[in-house]
Design a protein around this nucleic acid. Structure first.
Lengths: 234, 234
DNA sequence: TGTATTCTATTTGTCGACAAAAATTCAAGA
DNA sequence: TCTTGAATTTTTGTCGACAAATAGAATACA
């Protein structure tokens, strides 16, 4: 039961190793448990998960493919830094995906979709009530991803998923100093979005997506400006 | 020099193995040298490239991350089939990316960009003159990717790259039976796009992107209808 | 003849080991 | 003390081997 050199090692089905490590590392990166820019030690991970380096490396290759880590050839691999220089490009892409997925969801959603989306929205509302920042971030991303999936365009869904992932790291900074009125506003906006999608109002769904995105962008922008000022005064 | 069991094996720098295999397989998949849906044999590839299965597997993991192959756990890995059921989603995404990258290129391009884009357009024009279908496809994709890069949004560029890649396989079918007037029309449209981008006319650039996309979508759609009819008459 | 079951063969996922490359330490000389 | 260069340690990329999982062949049974 107690193995000092393999804390998370358990009996697993063959073939599940890489996925296990991938999921664990992904969450730790997105929740900022692993600091952006910090080094990743393959051997350490192998010991921690109680497996050889082979499945660890497979997980790292997959993470690198999604831009969550960076591998320097023959040298260390790092947790991808948050690129504040390209933050404008990020906001552009995020806003467009909010609009597009909103519109497509209104166009292509099927009966079960609204049920799923509503359930995830309830999860988000609960997290807001409980003031659980990590849960807010995760449930918010799940909610918007469900809308994207209702739009039934895997290309947009994949990009949006990547953007929401990257956003989890930024929001993790944001929610550390959040104004607690804002999440409540998001709850209301989410409900408007669901109604517009259910009513198959393409234009309104897209517009609400844009408004919602602008809301978030504006808040993060304020946060960044404040951070910059803090940097300057140090 | 002659090694019967490792045709492509040569002295390489350490660390280049996976990339070599990745590039080679990627080209063979996109040029339809490897048939969509066909199985991939790791051992065979290892022998062909004269290396062990480890770097081969790394290349396969990366290709799977980009959706170019599909891995069935504990079973074979196959070249990703062309998904004609989702072709509508593909066209939607492609059209939007043509528009967005056109607009952003007009907004953010820097001096060197126009030079690069013009050079790639010249390559495309040459391929059209030479009636070299494979070259047309490759240079066309490179041209549009250069426009995307001038737009300086890595998220859009990455999605567009993936779409253009996937498109290479579809166009490979298309150009087997192409009407030779069409590529010439594309040459003219490309030149209009360059002019609009250089003039920093955001609206026109976006509109030309849309027109260009519609052009391609319409042609591929016609092709698909024809193929369907052929299927029915068999 | 058709179906179920055991056996065999192929293929995949994982492992431990080794060598190349880089990072680090240490020593020598200015 | 600082720089240069050699020696050592650490870390990565690759390899060959083995075992689990599956597919296919062979056999038994109805």
């Amino acid at each position: 039961m107690t193995e000092k050199d393999a804390p998370e090692a358990v009996e697993r089905r063959r073939g599940s190793g890489a996925k296990l490590v991938y999921d664990a590392l992904r969450d730790e990166i997105l929740d900022l448990v692993l600091a952006p820019g910090s080094a990743i030690d393959e051997v350490e991970l192998a010991e921690r998960f109680g497996m050889s380096r082979t499945p660890i490396r497979e997980a790292l290759v997959r993470l690198a493919g999604e831009g969550l880590i960076e591998t320097l050839p023959n040298r260390s691999t790092l947790v991808a830094p948050i690129d504040f220089l390209n933050i404008h490009a990020y906001f552009d892409a995020l806003t467009l995906m909010y609009r597009v997925t909103g519109r497509l969801a209104a166009e292509h959603h099927k009966p079960g979709d609204i049920v799923r989306i509503t359930a995830l929205q309830a999860d988000f509302a609960r997290a807001v009530e409980a003031q659980d920042a990590l849960a807010m971030i995760a449930t918010n991303a799940a909610f918007h991803l469900a809308i994207a999936e209702a739009g039934r365009n895997p290309y947009f869904t994949a990009l949006f998923k990547r953007l929401l992932d990257e956003g989890r790291r930024i929001l993790r900074l944001y929610y550390q100093s959040y104004d607690d009125r804002l999440p409540h506003r998001f709850v209301g906006e989410h409900e408007e979005m669901i109604a517009a999608i259910a009513a198959r109002d393409l234009g309104l769904s897209e517009q609400l997506g844009r408004v919602h995105a602008d809301q978030i962008v504006e808040q993060v922008r304020k946060l960044l400006v404040r951070e910059e000022r803090l940097d300057l005064t140090l």
